[in-house]
């Protein structure tokens, strides 16, 4: 039982990270109808920037994550302008190829700056807390709490503010949105900034638990794709449900079956969902 509770918290914290990473990807897909293959690279850059602000600049942990998110938002806007905006009318294959180019560029850039070696980021949050009779590290508690706070703030932003609502409007109908005076270009930039900032928060939160290396974003990107396909591309509630489901499933499979099972479960889910219901489980009515 203690093992289960402990693993449950591990699953929740992993799920929180997945959610934050997945929402950005699903937002970008909703607005621009493209799967951003460079999302995993943004995650990786976010982790390295947090590392940089924390260890080299000596900024407190939470502030380091916030700064990384800010820089990533700028990178996201730049990426939208330079890579995706010029390709907005091109066939869908072009976006993905260009995104792959951006991904390789970021890999190489990070490798040139920080080297290819694995790096460990010491968590500034130490100690454990007793919840339901088991020891849970504060780091994991921080991850879950931050993820929930960010998710609530994001939902408020999208549902209640003008800018957030304009994202939803463009998602529903790009032409219609521009007819009522919404600038789709500005919304695209905003979406990219938001997506990059969210993925930076995810990476900054999980960085002390995992190691840092230039290709750390590749596997998580496929997992995040699995999540948003499970939840339906473009659906935010779908990304949240999918993120926590996959996080829990992965941890439980690792604990009770084997490490390899935990590693491949995301891919099995992805293949199964696409094979049985190619449009995702919770797809919105307006898909094409």
């Amino acid at each position: 039982m203690t093992l289960f509770v402990q693993q449950f918290f591990n699953g929740l914290s992993l799920g929180g990270v997945y959610c934050l990473a997945a929402i950005g990807l699903t937002l970008v897909f909703g607005v621009l109808r493209i799967p951003n293959l460079a999302h995993g690279a943004l995650y990786m850059v976010g982790a390295y920037l947090t590392y940089f602000f924390l260890t080299s600049a000596g900024v407190p942990y939470i502030l380091a994550i916030a700064l990384a998110a800010l820089v990533l938002a700028g990178i996201g806007i730049g990426m939208e302008r330079v890579v995706f905006h010029p390709l907005r009318n091109a066939p869908h294959t072009h976006h993905m190829i260009a995104a792959a180019g951006a991904m390789f560029f970021l890999h190489s850039l990070v490798q040139a700056i920080w080297g290819a070696d694995f790096r460990r980021m010491e968590s500034p949050i130490t100690g454990r807390v007793e919840i339901l009779g088991t020891q849970v590290s504060w780091q994991r508690v921080t991850i879950v709490v931050t993820a929930v706070v960010v998710l609530i703030a994001l939902t408020w932003f999208i549902k209640k503010t003008v800018h957030g609502q304009s994202i939803e409007a463009v998602e529903q109908d790009r032409v219609g949105a521009s007819l009522v005076g919404i600038n789709p270009n500005r919304v695209s930039m905003l979406t990219f900034a938001l997506a990059a900032a969210l993925v930076a928060v995810a990476a900054g939160l999980v960085a002390p638990i995992n190691l840092l290396y230039p290709t750390m974003g590749d596997v998580i990107m496929v997992k995040v794709f699995a999540i948003i396909i499970l939840g339906g591309l473009g659906s935010i509630p779908g990304a949240i449900v999918g993120g926590f489901t996959l996080g829990l499933a992965e941890v439980m499979a690792t604990t009770y079956v084997s490490a390899v099972a935990g590693e491949v479960i995301a891919f099995v889910v992805l293949i199964l969902v696409l094979a049985i219901r190619p449009t995702g489980l919770l797809t919105k009515a307006v898909q094409r």
């Binding site: 390709l87 091109a90 072009h94 190829i97 180019g101 951006a102 190489s108």
Partner: peptide, 14 residues
């Protein structure tokens, strides 16, 4: 090499 080749890919598709 991808510091140079990444932007080359992007420029090519654009």
């Amino acid at each position: 090499r991808f510091i140079l080749l990444g932007p080359v890919i992007i420029a090519l598709v654009i």
